[in-house]
Computed example of a mutant assay.
Amino acid sequence: MLDNFLPPLNDHNLPYPDTIHPIVVHFVIAMVLFSFFCDVTGYFTRNYQLYEVSWWNMFVATIAIFIAIIFGQIEAGLAIAYDAVEPVLNLHTLIGWSLSGIIAAITGWRYVIRLSDSKKLPLPYLGLGFGLTCLVFFQVYLGDQLVWIYGLHTVPVVDAAKEGVL
């Protein structure tokens, strides 16, 4: 009965033409990494205008990561997660949700810093930015594995899973 209300799934096992999560999440990745780059560059060059660029990148990234997570959850739920892929998918999901909280908290801290003195950035904030950058790179690595090694939402893997090969 519920099938009458749901759109049909295509050859990628999705109700829309292709995955949306990677598009949105690459936007988040770029903004977080560029924000850290602006912070470090601004710190060493004393170009404090870069701090403003960094702030707005983190602000938008904080909003965009939740959109990325929504589509990530939808697409993970529709993925045919065979046994070999489940640990990587679960870790990617856990880190993704954690990153949403971490990015929101860092953005909140950055807002407080911005209000108190927009021309100073404490070294612990830069250290945390470096840690966030490392975590983002690890998350990218996991996402790359899901697509390029395990082939989630690729036509050959979807077909193989539907035929019972996986």
Rank of each mutant, 00 (worst) to 15 (best):
F138D: 08
L152V: 12
L142A: 13
R114N: 13
G42M: 08
I69P: 03
K119I: 11
T19G: 07
Y141F: 14
M58I: 13
I65Y: 03
G77W: 04
P8G: 04
H26R: 10
L9Y: 06
P15N: 00
I63Q: 02
T41C: 12
R46Y: 01
Q73E: 08
V158E: 02
F5W: 01
I67S: 11
A81D: 05
I74D: 02
A64D: 00
I65Q: 04
L50P: 09
L50W: 09
T45H: 12
G151N: 05
L121F: 11
A68Y: 05
D144M: 13
N90C: 02
D11T: 14
S35F: 01
M1V: 10
D159E: 13
M58G: 08
I29A: 03
G131D: 07
L9D: 04
L123H: 08
D117E: 12
W148G: 12
S118A: 14
L94K: 04
A64N: 01
H12D: 05
P156Y: 07
S100M: 07
N13A: 04
V158F: 03
D159G: 11
I20K: 01
L126Q: 07
V88D: 06
A160C: 06
L94E: 03
G164I: 07
L78D: 06
N57T: 15
S54F: 01
A76P: 11
P124T: 05
M31T: 03
Y51S: 03
L142I: 10
V32E: 02
F66C: 10
V25L: 08
S100E: 00
L14K: 00
D11N: 12
G42P: 05
S118W: 10
I106G: 07
L9G: 09
V28Q: 00
L152G: 11
F71S: 09
G129N: 14
H12C: 08
S35K: 00
V28H: 01
F27P: 03
R114H: 15
S118R: 15
F44E: 10
Y43T: 14
G108I: 08
I106Q: 12
L152Q: 12
N10C: 10
V28K: 00
C38F: 04
L166R: 14
M31C: 10
D117G: 09
W109K: 13
L14N: 00
I103H: 03
I95W: 02
Y82G: 00
E86R: 15
I113V: 14
F5D: 00
L2V: 11
F5C: 05
R110N: 08
V88S: 12
I69H: 10
L14T: 01
G129D: 14
P22S: 11
F27A: 09
R114L: 14
P122K: 13
H153I: 03
E163Q: 05
L128C: 12
P87A: 05
V32Q: 01
S98R: 08
D11G: 12
M58F: 06
T133N: 11
A30I: 07
L142W: 09
S118I: 09
V147I: 11
F27K: 00
L135Y: 03
D159Y: 06
L9H: 06
F66Y: 08
P22G: 10
D159K: 14
P156T: 10
V25F: 02
Y82T: 01
A84I: 07
Y48W: 07
N90W: 03
L146M: 15
I80T: 06
C134L: 15
I67Q: 10
